[in-house]
Write a protein that binds this DNA or RNA. Structure first.
Lengths: 234, 234
DNA sequence: CTACCTCGCCCGCAAATGCGTGATTGCCGG
DNA sequence: CCGGCAATCACGCATTTGCGGGCGAGGTAG
């Protein structure tokens, strides 16, 4: 089902409507507290060939209950801002019960923290409610092809988070020898062991270590390790 | 120009072709070593109202040279697998010279490492070369609206990376007191200092520390710090 | 050619650490 | 009511660390 290599899905979708896998109907569940919106999406899904919305409820609790009584769906569209059980925690529980379910967040929130939490909880997609209906439908095919439908605005936030995370590679002009030692340091080796491993004298390691401390502006081994990991200069 | 609130961009694009900001032409540069592909994309861009491909070259070096002689573009479409100066390093240099340029990676690579590096280097979008032409054009509007066009397959990898990064909060049944000590450990404090800070005896800290070592299966302070940071259990 | 830097090497010592082996207290659940 | 557990405190000791000194070789830039 997860195609993995169908880069032309978009075109197929746009040229004519139903290019869905003919082998079986894709079942979709919907968790959304706004009744009108819920019905709109449900109808939209049901009107699309190959898709069927087999459950449309207003709370995570109902969906979780459904998991124990009904057949699990292929895809779960879930609102984040839900009354009662929070959508984020909702994903977590759903995924822990049935990990194969692909969860798409459907929300008005676009703040980085919510996005991050949802993703860590196991979401496979993230759309804004303001998305046009066709984007929502298209996202369902995307996910079946092994992709992750993400609104472009949200994708930007993701990229920013990544960039902020990996970019500040604070360079402290660490020497190769020093870097090597830093490496072993992180692994918890004592100086003696490091010296033996690198085939140099204990005192040499000691000197390098001192230089590392100086360059990193730290005064202890743990501090150095912490800084090395945080600034990812290993 | 960066609209920020035009969630219906897709529909506009798909219903009729040119919904581009009428106020000025969007200039696009293209770096791609395959001549046929380069020409295809260039023509595609030029045929689209509101867009103009003002430079189409086969190497990063040429593009960087262009930056000092020509007007900087709004968007740069760049291949990753380039001969000579690598595409990743290319982004870095371009962004360091003209940070306002939005760079979209256009590549056949879809391995996580390349993606990660490109993003950290400052890419604002990431498409596969196998993407249909309309997706490439749409990505240009996306980026002008403040979004980040990302191929769904690649977005999935991003999400996986994120999930792998934040999810495995390996719980080692660390006590609150122990967690507190772990905290000060990564800050490089000696046991004595920690004891004083927490208002407990030196020996207490020592015992807790031993328990931490046992629970984390480590035998040294640095190893503990490393593990605590890697498994983000602080 | 000299000044400077990096890398490797060495001595010595006060301080901190890791670990073995204890004990006491308060709290929870069976 | 008692066993289990986290948290606290305690002593001793072999190692390891952090840091104060100092020395020489190679490279490079002035």
């Amino acid at each position: 089902m997860i195609a993995g290599d169908r880069p032309f899905g978009y075109i197929e979708l746009m040229s004519e409507n139903p290019p869905y896998p003919a082998d079986h109907t894709v079942y979709v569940w919907l968790v959304e507290d706004n009744e009108r919106f819920r019905n709109n999406i449900r109808d939209l899904v049901n009107e699309t060939a190959g898709l069927a919305c087999s459950l449309a409820v207003s709370s995570c609790e109902e969906a979780l209950a459904g998991l124990s009584s009904e057949a699990a769906p292929d895809i779960l569209l879930m609102d984040i801002g839900l009354p009662g059980l929070d959508g984020i925690e909702g994903i977590r529980q759903v995924k822990s019960i049935a990990p194969s379910i692909q969860v798409i967040m459907l929300t008005v929130f676009d703040d980085s923290d919510k996005i991050f939490q949802a993703i860590c909880a196991g979401a496979s997609g993230y759309l804004l409610k303001s998305a046009p209906p066709d984007e929502i439908i298209r996202s369902l095919t995307d996910i079946l092809e092994g992709g992750a439908p993400i609104n472009a605005q949200i994708a930007r936030k993701l990229l920013d988070m990544f960039a902020a995370m990996g970019a500040p590679k604070g360079n402290y002009e660490i020497t190769n020898a020093e870097k090597e030692i830093l490496h072993r340091l992180v692994e918890g080796n004592p100086k003696k062991q490091i010296a033996h491993d690198l085939g140099v004298s204990f005192h040499t390691v000691d000197t390098h270590l001192r230089n590392i401390y100086t360059k990193l502006h730290v005064h202890s081994r743990s501090e150095a390790v912490a800084k090395a990991l945080k600034e990812r200069l290993l």
